[in-house]
C-alpha cells in the first residue's frame, strides 16, 4: 500500500518563465498543486529534498504530506519535468488527493524468482514490455509495485496482466484486454559482420570520379 512521506514547501508568487527561473536560482524547484476542491497553488520545494524523494523507488505511487507554510496538504506526484542533459528536476506537478480519491496511476513492475525460470537459466532474455502498468485505484491503496513471479517460465512464454495478482480495489486501466507485461525471448546469437563493405564504397568512388571529370571539362 502507498507510503506517506512528508515534504516541506513554500508558496511562491508570480508565474511564468522568469519567476520560475528566479526560484531555481535560489536552489529551489518550482511546482504546482492542483485538483481537489481548492485552487491551483504555485509552490517551491528545496531541490535537495526533492531529489532525495525522486531517488526513492515509486515516486509517482507515494502519497506526500506537503507542508506549505505550516498547513499540510496530501498530494500525489503526477509529473516531473527534467533537464534533458542533467536530469535535474525543473518542475513538478502534484495532484491534491484524499484517501478515497480514485485515480489512474502508473505502478512499477518487479520481477521475482528469475533463477527459477528454466527459460532464463538456459540463456533466455527477459524482455520487459511494460516497466509500469497504469492501474485505477483509490489514492490510499496504491500498490507499491506489481510482483511478477517468473517461476517455471520457458523461452517463448509471455506474461500477461492476468497472471499478476492485483490487490482488492485495484484494476488495470486497460481492463478490456489481457496485455503483455514481459516475454522470455531466445538469446540473440551475435553474427560477426564482414570486415569491410568494399563494394558499396567502391561504387561511390567511381560515381564521384565521373562527376569530377565532368566538372573539369
Amino acid at each position: 500500500m502507498a507510503e506517506t512521506h512528508g515534504l516541506a514547501a513554500t508558496k511562491r508568487s508570480g508565474s511564468g518563465t522568469g519567476a520560475a527561473r528566479a526560484v531555481r536560482r535560489e536552489g529551489r524547484v518550482p511546482a504546482i498543486i492542483y485538483g481537489g476542491d481548492g485552487e491551483a497553488e504555485s509552490i517551491a520545494i528545496e531541490a535537495r529534498l526533492l531529489e532525495r524523494e525522486l531517488r526513492k523507488p515509486s515516486f509517482f505511487g507515494t502519497l506526500l504530506d506537503m507542508e506549505i507554510d505550516g498547513t499540510k496538504t496530501r498530494v500525489l506526484p503526477r509529473d516531473v519535468q527534467q533537464h534533458p542533459v542533467t536530469d535535474f528536476p525543473l518542475h513538478v506537478d502534484f495532484l491534491r488527493v484524499t484517501e478515497n480519491t480514485r485515480i489512474n496511476v502508473d505502478v512499477a513492475v518487479h520481477f521475482i524468482n528469475e533463477e527459477e525460470s528454466p527459460g532464463l537459466t538456459k540463456g533466455g532474455v527477459l524482455n520487459v514490455v511494460r516497466f509500469e502498468v497504469e492501474v485505477f485505484c483509490r489514492a490510499g491503496s496504491i500498490p507499491e509495485s506489481l510482483i511478477v513471479d517468473l517461476t517455471g517460465t520457458e523461452v517463448g512464454d509471455s506474461i500477461h496482466i492476468s497472471a499478476v495478482s492485483l490487490p482488492d480495489g485495484v484494476r488495470p486501466v486497460e481492463g478490456d484486454r489481457d496485455f503483455t507485461i514481459a516475454t522470455i525471448a531466445a538469446p540473440t546469437i551475435e553474427v560477426e559482420p564482414e570486415p569491410e563493405d568494399e563494394g558499396a564504397e567502391g561504387e561511390g568512388e567511381e560515381g564521384e570520379g565521373e562527376e569530377d571529370g565532368g566538372a573539369e571539362e
Partner: peptide, 25 residues
Amino acid sequence: GKGKGTPEFWAARVKPGRIMFEVDG
C-alpha cells in the same frame, strides 16, 4: 577545389541529452 569530396562514411549528429544506447536484462 574541383567539387566536394567523396562520401566516405555515415554519421549520426548527436546533441547533448540524447540517449544513445539502452540496455536491460
